Simulated assay, not measured.
Amino acid sequence: MTILVTGAAGFIGTYACRALQARGEPVVGLDSYNAYYDPQLKRDRVAALCPDVDIRVLDLVDRDGLSALFEEVRPQRVIHLAAQAGVRYSLENPYAYVDSNLVGFVNLLELCRHRGVAHFVYASSSSVYGDSAVPPFSEDQRIDRPRSLYAATKAANELMAHTYAHLYGLHATGLRFFTVYGPWGRPDMAPLLFSRAVLAGRPIRVFNHGAMRRDFTHVDDIVAGVLGALDQPSPDEPPHRVFNLGNHAPVELERFIAVIEQAAGRKAEKVYQPLQPGDMVETMADTARARAAFGFEPATTIEAGMPEVVQWCRAYFGANA
């Protein structure tokens, strides 16, 4: 019962591979190791968290390469975490999002359909809620007013997966992640950006003049949700469901920075700026549906989770972070 994990060298992917291995699942990964951020961090992350996983270097747009991998591995389940991430980068390089998040997604759907994959679990995003969002965000709210191309591609993924479930009976589950953080996290996101800057005494940019709230969710809680969803394919017709995976506890940006300051042992130099194009002012997950379906109960507060991120940044990046 091999499980294929795409984006296996990514932040959530490595933790997911480690958790699957810990419960005895045979795992094969793929990752393109692209240069959106330093590929060395990805290699180090794999070496630290899941060094024994067979991870193939492969791009989602390589249709022939993906087909050959499916023929060789014959996965029964797929956890699709690979994507071009980042709201702000989608303003600079839209084609990367079309290639990875749209073309690559269809390539995987087609292979899952034709190769008889029993369950396709894929990463969506809290960004899909866009301008229609009313906290707490529930899965029944509209997602047709995205604030970025990244969000639009994730909303499109949900529509594509629903279509394949409807037409071909493909069991598919979408997971809307809410601001995932933890050691070995993405260096383009606030938890690492702020932690590294405060440790090094560099200023941090605080957007919307600090008037923002985020539903920060620890990676361990997210991975518990991924595995819970994997084990519970939809009984519905069509067999497609979408779940929020968040902490259901939005945190004010100033409080988040204060937790980092305390862990780092120094004050942050804050540079207040207007809201960035594409950003959302507040995110907050309604997690009742995931709790009812597979017992999702996130337990990690930022007071418990962020100090370990700061400690990891100090250890990995050195004194100057």
Rank of each mutant, 00 (worst) to 15 (best):
H119F: 03
R214M: 10
G10A: 09
A288H: 11
G13V: 04
G228P: 05
R176C: 10
S100F: 02
D52Y: 04
Q76R: 15
E308G: 02
G130A: 09
P298R: 10
F216G: 06
R147V: 10
Y95I: 15
P187M: 07
D286G: 01
T163C: 10
P135Q: 07
A165V: 02
K42C: 01
Q276V: 13
V5D: 00
A48H: 09
G185V: 02
Y36G: 03
P239G: 10
A155N: 04
H171Y: 03
S195Q: 08
R142N: 06
A172F: 05
D54Y: 00
I79S: 03
G10P: 05
G265I: 11
P75V: 03
I55R: 00
P233N: 06
L60P: 00
P235Y: 02
G86E: 09
M189G: 07
F178Y: 14
G201V: 06
Q311L: 12
V226Y: 07
R18W: 02
P75M: 06
V198D: 02
G265Y: 06
P274K: 12
R88M: 10
A268V: 04
I257P: 02
V242L: 15
A290M: 14
L41E: 15
R255C: 12
G104H: 03
V259N: 06
A156S: 15
Q76F: 04
P274C: 13
L170V: 11
L175Y: 01
D279L: 10
S100G: 10
S67I: 07
T300V: 13
Q40E: 15
Q141M: 12
L253N: 12
D188N: 14
R266K: 09
S127C: 11
A9E: 01
M212F: 03
F177N: 07
F194T: 03
D64G: 08
L20A: 01
H119E: 05
R289Y: 02
D220W: 05
A9V: 01
R266Y: 01
G210N: 11
N244C: 12
